[in-house]
Write a protein that binds this DNA or RNA. Structure first.
Lengths: 146, 146
DNA sequence: TTAAATGCAAACGCTTTGCAATTGA
DNA sequence: TCAATTGCAAAGCGTTTGCATTTAA
C-alpha cells in the first residue's frame, strides 16, 4: 500500500503539499533533510511553507512511513521506511557515510533482549568513527553522503 | 592527574568559572546538561554567563576530559570521562535510562573493524527502545534518569 | 604586561506555535 | 458544510559569536 493510500485510510487528507513532500522523500537518492524537502516543494508550489513540511514529517513519522536518523549534523534526516532499514557508519574525518545492513546489529539486539529484557529500536542508527580510507591515510573526498 | 592539572599543563588558565564547571560535572550523580551546569555555576558566581559554560565544555571535550551523550532530548549531556565509559538504554515509554557496560558493545566494535575497517567511536552511545518494566506492563515512574 | 578568558547582547539555525484563511472529503 | 490543513509571522530553544572588559600567569 502506498503512502497516499495509508494517509487516506487513516483519515488524513491528501493535500498537494503532502503529496509533494512524499514525492520528495521517494525521489531522494539518500537521506533528505526538512530544508531540502522544502526546497523541492517550493520549486513546484512557491506558496508552500516550511512549517507544512515539518507538520507532514511529524505525521509520516507517527504513521511509521518515514524514519528519522541523526547523523550528528544538528538536524535530522528522513528516509522512506519501505525502502528498508539499514544503519550508517559516519566517518568524523571525511564525513563519508557508509551503509551497514540491518542484520549487522541483530546479535546486539538479541543480546540486549536476553540480558536486559530491552527491546532496542535499532532502525536507523548512525555510528560515528573513522573509516578505512581515513585510517590508511588515503583520505579522499567522499562521493556520497547521508 | 586531575582536570585542573591537565588544563594548566596544556597551557589553559585556571579560572574560577572553569573550576566551578568542573566541580559541577564531578558532583553530578548522572549526566548533566549545559543549562544545569550553568544553574550550579550561577548559584555561586551570579555574574557568570552561560556562554562561558559552553566554551568550557568545548575545551573539556577537546582535552577528552568529558564525554557528550545525546539522549534524544534536543540537547546533549556531559559526563566526566575518568568516571568511565558506558552506554545507555533509553526507554521511550517511561524515559528511564539504564547503563550498559562498555564491554557489551565490544563484539560489535570488533565486527565493524574486521568487516569494514571502521573504527567505531562507541564511548557513550544511547540506544533507544522499550524497557523490561514497560514491556511487561508494570510501567512505573523511573527513579533515575540520565 | 599581555594573551587568554569572560560577560554581555545579539544572532544563529532548526523547529514549533497561534491564529486567521483556505480546502478536501 | 466544516473540521482538517495551510500560510504566515512570531517565538522558542539550545547554542554560538563579536566585541569590549577583565584577569591569570
Amino acid at each position: 500500500m502506498s503512502c497516499h493510500e495509508i494517509l487516506q485510510e487513516k483519515g488524513h487528507r491528501l493535500t498537494l503539499q503532502r503529496m509533494l513532500v512524499i514525492e520528495a522523500l521517494h525521489n531522494a537518492v539518500r537521506h533528505i533533510s526538512a530544508e531540502e524537502i522544502y526546497e523541492e516543494l517550493h520549486r513546484r508550489h512557491p506558496y508552500a511553507n516550511i512549517s507544512t513540511v515539518y507538520r507532514t514529517l511529524e505525521l509520516l513519522k507517527e504513521l511509521e512511513l518515514v524514519t528519522e536518523t541523526d547523523f550528528g549534523e544538528g538536524r535530522v534526516r528522513y528516509h522512506v521506511a519501505e525502502k528498508g532499514h539499514h544503519h550508517h557508519l559516519v566517518c568524523h574525518s571525511c564525513g563519508r557515510v557508509a551503509d551497514l545492513e540491518e542484520t549487522a546489529l541483530h546479535p546486539l539486539k538479541e543480546g540486549l533482549l536476553d540480558e536486559y529484557g530491552f527491546v532496542a529500536d535499532l532502525r536507523h542508527l548512525a555510528i560515528s568513527g573513522r573509516c578505512n580510507e581515513c585510517r590508511s591515510g588515503h583520505e579522499t573526498e567522499p562521493k556520497l553522503r547521508y
